[in-house]
Design a protein around this nucleic acid. Structure first.
Length: 157
DNA sequence: GCCAACGTTGGC
DNA sequence: GCCAACGTTGGC
């Protein structure tokens, strides 16, 4: 069992959208970065925990919890000429990009990026490294526990 | 909108 | 293989 952080633009797919989807699950499409793809293809397993992160928005931060709900399979948008994610170099025989299914678990109080930066024990999080842009990053179980505890702490601020 | 940082492309 | 140019990400 491993843990991950996945970025999503809430204007595109917010945690609410995942939870509202049939079976609380959505297909994760449009990843066009090889490192992120390799995580999905080679490392992510059903049941892995996901920190659902809202990026490129007014209040970036962890907005909920989710889990990996499928193994990797070819991302259908790479074959669709009408998709913004179409890739002319991908073929059915040799797909280039993969999707996984992501199942929402819960929406949490927003844990803003700035707070993550200030929390002891998270200094090594890939998300927080200078220039980090990866949309999928591994999270250690230590980091997960620190964040999970904070997300579920009584609301006393 | 700005801009730093990163990834990809393509000429050589 | 090098590296400049370009496009994208994402916080602010």
């Amino acid at each position: 069992m491993q843990y991950w952080l996945m970025k999503s633009e809430p204007g595109d797919i917010a945690i609410d959208d995942v939870l509202a989807a049939p079976g609380s699950a959505v297909r994760w499409t449009g990843v066009r970065n090889y490192q992120a793809r390799n995580f999905m293809r080679d490392a992510m397993q059903v049941g892995d925990g996901i920190l659902f992160y809202h990026s490129s928005c007014a209040r970036p931060g962890v907005a909920g919890l989710a889990m990996v709900a499928s193994a990797a399979y070819p991302d259908p948008t790479q074959f669709d000429p009408n998709s913004q994610y179409f890739d002319a170099k991908a073929t059915l025989a040799q797909p280039r990009w993969v999707s996984i299914d992501v199942r929402g678990i819960e929406k949490t109080p927003l844990l803003p990026l700035m707070q993550l930066r200030s929390m002891p024990g998270l200094e090594a999080m890939l998300l927080l490294q200078k220039g980090s842009r990866l949309s999928i990053t591994p999270v250690t179980s230590c980091q997960w526990q620190i964040i999970d505890a904070r997300l579920h702490a009584a609301d006393v601020r």
